[in-house]
């Protein structure tokens, strides 16, 4: 075979192999068989992604500590932070597992992903050699992607709100809006990232 393996790319979903011809900035290369997006470079994506990851970090920490919903009924009031929500299951034995899972899904995994992305892309953006283990870090970050569920939690807030609306007065705390912003940021960040370009830049 005359072609070198570095010049090939395989679709992760259907195993189709192509010759890489990198699309222009803002364009996308799509698998002709199963339509998976293979390459989608963007100008200055690295810096934007790092900025967003930093914002995500700050917002998560703040959103975890501040109350995100408060409730009032007949003079009795209560407010709840994300931490309280995770701890809700800690009252009875078996459900402690659930506490850990919930805390991981909505707080720790998103934090871990933001940190890993900064670790991986930081040196790349500023033209330094990649940090040791950057490839591995990016692999872990990608593996964690489906398990980062902050956006689902936000929709959960909305549902919970309506569920108790006729039981008591409910209002949003500052953390709710932070979490809302967070979700938008995380989604934009995921769409901005061209995995192929990241792998390619780490390879050098």
């Amino acid at each position: 075979m005359s072609t070198r393996l570095e010049e090939l790319i395989a679709c992760p979903h259907c195993d189709a192999v192509y010759h890489v011809s990198e699309p222009k900035m803002g364009e996308r290369a799509v698998c002709g068989r199963c339509h998976t997006v293979l390459i989608a470079p963007r100008r200055r994506a690295g810096k934007q992604i790092i900025a967003m990851a930093l914002a995500v970090l700050i917002l998560i920490v703040a959103a975890t500590v501040f109350p995100f919903l408060s409730i009032k009924a007949a003079g009795v009031a209560n407010r709840s932070s994300v931490l309280d929500a995770a701890l809700a299951f800690s009252s009875s034995g078996l459900l402690i597992l659930l506490t850990l899972a919930v805390a991981a899904l909505i707080v720790f995994i998103p934090i871990a992903r933001a940190l890993l992305v900064i670790y991986v892309l930081g040196p790349v953006v500023w033209d330094r050699p990649a940090f040791p283990g950057a490839l591995r870090a990016f692999r872990i970050s990608e593996a964690l992607r489906p398990w980062s569920m902050a956006e689902i939690f936000v929709l959960g807030c909305a549902v919970a709100l309506i569920k108790v609306a006729d039981l008591a007065d409910v209002s949003f705390g500052p953390a709710f809006w932070m979490f809302g912003a967070l979700v938008v940021l995380m989604m934009v960040q995921d769409n901005f990232m061209c995995r192929y370009s990241v792998w390619k830049s780490l390879e050098k």
Partner: peptide, 18 residues
């Protein structure tokens, strides 16, 4: 997205403690 129900339970049981 099915996880939403678990989150709703978590939110409700931490919030509605009157």
């Amino acid at each position: 997205w099915s996880m939403i129900d678990v989150f709703v339970v978590a939110i409700l049981s931490s919030l509605v403690q009157l």
